[in-house]
Amino acid sequence: MKNLLYKEFHLSIHPAYFLMPAFGVLLLIPHWPYFIALMYFFFISVPNIFNNNKAQNDIGFSATLPIRRADIVTARVTSITILELLQILVASIFVFIKMTLFQTENFLLDANIAFIGFTFMMFGIFNVIYLPMFYKTADKIGWPIIVSFSATFLFSAVIEAIILMVPAAKILDGKAHLSAQLLVLGIGILAFFLLSYEANRLSIKRFKKINI
């Protein structure tokens, strides 16, 4: 697996994608739907990485190496997960800058601890839909992107609507109720890892069935 991750980051994934977390700076914009700042990963990084690998015949290359099919999938899921964690980590830094320096409350969900928890959930949802859908063909990325992105958009819209319309959910907004927000963060982290694990399991199952 170490060798495959080396391959992922030295051949398959261009270093420029490590700059994508810089979109976290968008969290400093006042009054904005902050989930969008992290969705750039779905618009730019994922389609480009997977399309580029298709153009570079990554699967043809991997087929010549002494590796299991399952390992090809796990390496990719792991590398995408690493990029996502980096994205969330950098976003979290901007969340703390925002919480410390900016006092104005957002009309929608604030960039706060609960928001970080929700972004973990959002990336988990993306992974569990996109990756198994992609590995059904290991070729077509159009529908997997459309469906998984729609699901994450719906998730973020529902969260924003709940924060806006359900009075009890207001404790997740602002900076006051830290324990409730930390709980959301904990659940978010757990959901992210469980969903990504499931994404890997389902992707392996599907990738094993296809002819390369």
Partner: peptide, 30 residues
């Protein structure tokens, strides 16, 4: 697969990469 040399249609992968970049990955697997 450690004992196989497999080639489907020449080196038809990572065409934009330099030879050393591909070789330094390949050598780790064997």
């Amino acid at each position: 697969k450690q004992d196989l040399g497999i080639m489907f249609g020449g080196v038809d992968y990572y065409r934009k990469h330099k030879i050393y970049q591909i070789s330094r990955v390949v050598r780790r697997f064997f």
